Amino acid sequence: MNWSVEDRNRRMQSLFYLLGVAVFFIGFLRFMPFLLFIGLFFIVLGYTSEKYMLYLTRHLMLINKKTDTRLSIGENGELTLMFTNTSRLPFFSIQGELEIDAIAEFRESTHEHPQSCTFTFSIPAGKTISITCPITAISRGTARIRSFQLTCEDPLHICRVLLRPNELIRNRLIIYPKPLPVANVSQLRPRHPGFDPAAHALFHDDTAPSGTRDYLTSDPFRYIHWKASARSGRLQTKVFEKVAHLSWCFVFLTDPGNTANRTTDDFEKRISATAYMTKFSCQNQISYSIYCNNKPMGKKIITELEEGHGTAQLRKAWEFLAFMQKWQIKAPVDQSMRAIDQVLSRPQTLFIMDWDRLSENSPYLLKWLNFGHVVFFLHIEGDALFFSTVPASGGEMSV
């Protein structure tokens, strides 16, 4: 990385030049070789210190690779910077100072503001060193190094320069949301036929028997297991593998002109509830996707996380939630719903995590219900979070 020299402190260097010239001139007038040598020595020191600092700015490099530090709220971690010395001379007395966004704090900061940190290091010739700054995650979001500077001095502290990077430092801090439990999530049942095993599904696979049980009068006659019945001496019915289409979809639809009606705490709770739901989905092998109307760059109306499952999907989902900010909501709700409707190709379970002005966009809701989607709405009452569902016949009932 190239540096921009913001400031050069040459007071001490100027003093060495002035003193050297004065002593050299006195020695020249009085024919004193010793004073000539001393004056010339001061002049050379001042000149050498300046060349040393110029040499340092050319050979001291910050390895500016894209590095992400991932933490959860309240978790401790480290922000790492790597410097390399490409010269044959060691560099001493380098002091760094950096500042990050307010979602994290430096644990060992001596500044008035805990988002600022200073460190001092020296680097041998031809070596690479790592500087670690201990941090603590405070709130959900992403943070970058907003300001960074190095104050460098020569070994004799004659000359000093202030260096700032010419490009954005690519180190990034990602703080995941804190999951908040949602009531009765375990009672939600898959309501669409499919091929994924499900312990509480309403459907089963006729081609995948998993055992037998005693025959009931309500059991179809074709499900009787004749060999098992002959062995046990009483009628046995086949038990089949329960299957369903396990796919959840989490939707955020916030009206750009209605953001003042929801507090930041309310939005954070909805983010935390989604984090809990995605974690629950990961533990139960349920695939899911996320849609939000914070318009990304380009022609897309919505920001989306494509359907997936497992720990890799959970990591993507929490990063997706970490980047979501209410001030980024720009896409109109009706356009966003139209875009979401185009990608919902099969019936799914939809969780509306945030939706402003619901009544104005009910036609899309009715379309989703008629298509076969099961729609749940997240409600917040104090510290309690729970879902309610809208049946296709209309009205609203609690889960």
Rank of each mutant, 00 (worst) to 15 (best):
V333T: 08
L173H: 00
Y17A: 05
R189G: 02
L19R: 09
T207P: 01
V5T: 15
L163E: 04
I340M: 14
L35F: 15
T57H: 04
V399A: 02
A339S: 14
D356E: 08
W318S: 04
V375L: 12
L56C: 11
P179V: 04
I100R: 00
V239N: 02
L56Y: 08
Y176P: 03
S93I: 08
Y52I: 09
R270E: 10
T80Q: 00
F320P: 07
T57G: 06
F91D: 04
F376I: 06
K367F: 03
I43D: 01
G298I: 11
R88I: 06
D383F: 12
E307C: 13
D206G: 06
S49L: 06
S14A: 15
D354K: 01
I329E: 01
F92D: 12
L350A: 09
C159H: 12
K316A: 12
R231I: 14
M324R: 03
I123T: 04
L62P: 01
L98H: 02
T110N: 07
G395Y: 02
Y291D: 04
R88D: 14
R146H: 01
F280Y: 15
L45S: 11
I302R: 08
T274Q: 07
Q95P: 02
H379V: 02
E108R: 04
N284F: 10
S210P: 00
H373A: 00
Q283P: 04
D154W: 12
I290G: 05
